[in-house]
Design a protein around this nucleic acid. Structure first.
Lengths: 149, 149
DNA sequence: CTTGTTGCAAATTCTTTGCATGACA
DNA sequence: TGTCATGCAAAGAATTTGCAACAAG
């Protein structure tokens, strides 16, 4: 489980606040433990249920802070709600998310990054950014009805 | 400019309502005329300014109806706001949007569609959907300060 | 007539913010 | 002691929905 207050963290954390608090750590722990993408509200609810005394706005702030330092990834679902999950690698990443059970698989593909960059450059665009979201029904959910569903 | 009430439209429009109204047509016209992606609120404002007497909810409903029949494309920006634009071809499409002036270029690439499908299938996912958004600074905006900015 | 649309206002939902309180260096 | 996080409540924003009035086949 990740640890914000880990040893090598003093000189790091660029524009961000310099220390982690109990709540901050609790948010990160809960997020890590969950493993998959989760909604702020759901995460908050899970934490309360688990006995953590933490405010909703703190969870919002903590998650956004994590995204700022690239310790978490986020995406918006079709309804416009943000989902978060801890980031495992240091690199920019995409995910394939199951619409039935919510599980996700990180996708590592240089190919797509290249495609995005090349396409944009071809069209004369600079400073390219991309958002790529894949979703489907995972193998588990294709068999029986989804496990978490 | 597209026309909802065009000839071949009686037997079509599947699950959708069977006729277009003055407001509906006005929304489509305004959207077509704008050409680029635009916010519901902005489109509504533009229509009022242009003298159209139309309610905000009607614009919302009309735009979603257009998306339902694939007559318009939509995407959500970083702030979570939906943008719409008329669709030119019958096919599923992606766009490269300028973050400075808001102009957009449709991207037609089988390659990316293939990639998305293949990747998902490789990982055992079925019924794959994808959202791909590219943004950057267009050629015009790279020179002088953006024209519309 | 009957069905579907319109438009306003109210309601919803997610997210952010103001501010007093509290904790840590 | 000063700075920053916290948490609640209030604010904000985008979008949806309830409902009475209305248009058209």
């Amino acid at each position: 489980m990740a640890d914000i207050l880990a040893e090598g963290d003093r000189p790091t954390t660029p524009t961000l606040h310099r220390y982690a608090t109990r709540q901050r750590q609790a948010v990160l722990d809960a997020l890590s433990e969950h493993g998959e993408f989760i909604t702020v509200q759901d995460l908050h609810h899970a934490m309360r249920t688990a006995g953590h005394q933490v405010g909703l706005s703190t969870v919002y702030r903590a998650l956004n802070a994590l995204v700022d330092v690239h310790a978490a990834d986020t995406f918006r679902d079709a309804a416009g709600v943000q989902h978060y999950r801890t980031r495992t690698t240091a690199e920019h990443q995409h995910y394939l998310v199951c619409r039935s059970c919510g599980s996700s698989v990180p996708i590592t593909s240089q190919r797509i990054e290249r495609w995005a960059d090349d396409t944009a450059r071809e069209l004369g665009f600079a400073d390219v950014a991309h958002v790529i979201e894949l979703s489907g029904i995972c193998a588990d959910c294709q068999d029986g009805p989804g496990p978490n569903d």
